[in-house]
Design a protein around this nucleic acid. Structure first.
Lengths: 130, 130
DNA sequence: TATAGTGTTTATAAACAGTATACAGTGAGT
DNA sequence: ACTCACTGTATACTGTTTATAAACACTATA
């Protein structure tokens, strides 16, 4: 990762910072922006860039390592592993469906236009296949 | 709400129970399954149905009341309010877009097939407009 | 073999989530 | 009016999670 410009933290959000970091880096990993073999910034470096404590970043790295995305070992910097998608659990699709429904409902509840939501869903649907 | 069969709590999930309740009831509200004027089950009733403490349900109701969905007052049961979608904040669309991307990435990371994800997105896109 | 880099461990404080229990308002039946 | 069974509320308490801090240990390299 050249810099941390692609990650943005909201300290006022209800989702905790460690999970914000995990979610955003995982997204970059899935989308291929962080290819296998790439070095991640050190926990201290990323932490100061994001304005949080480095232990919080270390925790996020550990979570991603447990998911099989990163290789972390003591004195060396974290590195992206080659990773094949695991076989999905039997209800992973159901969980996704439910959470997606809830996310859309929340956006609608906040006043996001139905057309905008639908457009975003449709365009992302194309992107996932490509 | 006739019964609580439409709500399901996962005590092992990482998202706290109070938010699970809020998210699921909000989804029912947005989708019209709980129309304005409907009475919600009492906090004790729903709590025993879900297997949690009634104060947790009360907390969820309070959150939904703050969002403008419910009217709650002391000795009376909670009631669904008529509610117009608020004007969306300037970056509500951006937040939705980002969270949607992350949700899809997480599903892919867990091995949900790209075709299944795309299909779900597309079908929901149609549903939102209808 | 220093030394400056890396992640780890342990401890701490604060916020959050969930529960228990006592309280207070409401309304229907008497 | 009264009462009783119902409603939500307030407070206190417990365990968990989050984020930080500081001391630690490993690695690479000059």
């Amino acid at each position: 990762m050249n810099d941390a410009a692609q990650i943005r933290i909201d300290l006022d959000a209800s989702t905790p910072v460690n999970r914000q970091i995990v979610d955003q880096i995982r997204t970059l990993l899935v989308e291929g922006a962080l290819p296998a073999g790439a070095d991640l910034p050190s926990v201290r470096r990323l932490a100061t860039d994001l304005g949080v404590h480095f232990a919080t970043v270390a925790d996020a790295y550990r979570t991603l390592a447990e998911e099989g995305w990163l290789e972390i070992s003591h004195g060396r910097s974290a590195r992206v592993l080659p990773r094949r998608a695991p076989v999905a659990g039997p209800d992973a699709g159901d969980v996704f469906r439910r959470r997606l429904r809830q996310l859309v409902a929340e956006a609608r509840s906040q006043g996001v236009a139905a057309k905008e939501i639908a457009g975003e869903l449709a365009s992302l649907a194309k992107g996932v296949i490509a």
